[in-house]
Write a protein that binds this DNA or RNA. Structure first.
Lengths: 126, 126
DNA sequence: TATTGTGTCATAAGATACTATGACACTAAA
DNA sequence: TTTAGTGTCATAGTATCTTATGACACAATA
């Protein structure tokens, strides 16, 4: 995995895992790779992965069975979604709006955005 | 200034300065606060500010006159805009699209975005 | 010239992230 | 019971960011 130099690795792994859960690539109740496995796969130290798993366990996203492994909590998707939605509207969106203003982005740039979001309307009730 | 814990301080200062330049709060040719001044104002070490100024000088955003101070380069806004536009379309936008998909954002959430961008159309030729 | 404010450089120290490694407790399965 | 795979903990070392501080060269000004 290629990591962003300006952000902690264990946080980037958490983000990666969160996205996989939200995207149903890992499902609630399912077991995730062991600390050692993921560490080797990502070419990272055991302790770094351990730190990711621990923080996610504290947030209720992961559950742990000693001697067996880590599992995705049943309501993990909901927890992640709530967390990220808050983060999105309170920090990322304001930052995005500011960026759009400063960079003078136009409707042409917006096209792809709109069509994508329209599709979400059809899937969910609003 | 309140810094984000998960990102280097000297980078956050750079981002802050870039935004002020793009927003015309600091204009090309204008002198910016001295290393010591900004360090004190932001409650940060001199060397940290120095690092920010140095990296920005290497990018051509700032110019330096020894014994006098740092100045905003004439074409600083253009340089910053090019850099950020690239960054935006190659990294932030893909990340945003992914986030929208995962969080199932709807048109209601999009409203503010659209109106803002429409305004940019009136100001710029496209 | 003397003073003050610039940037610049060097050194040391602290904090934190990450790595490397070993050892131990627990669980499942041969 | 033995073995292999889990998580867990402790220790030490490395790298990087940040701080703290002093000293020096340069420029503007009284």
């Amino acid at each position: 995995m290629d990591f962003n130099e300006s952000k902690n690795i264990f946080l980037q792994i958490e983000e990666w895992l969160n996205n996989r859960i939200l995207d149903d690539k890992i499902q609630p109740g399912e077991r995730i790779p062991s600390v050692r496995e993921l560490a080797e796969e990502m070419e990272v130290n055991r302790n770094t992965v351990m730190r990711t798993y621990s923080t996610m366990e504290n947030k209720g996203i992961l559950e742990n069975k000693r001697g067996i492994g880590f599992f995705v909590a049943i309501d993990a998707p909901k927890i992640i979604q709530n967390m990220q939605k808050t983060e999105f509207f309170e920090k990322e969106l304001p930052r995005l709006l500011e960026r759009i203003k400063l960079l003078r982005l136009t409707s042409k740039d917006l096209a792809e955005l709109v069509t994508l979001i329209k599709n979400n309307d059809h899937e969910t009730q609003n």
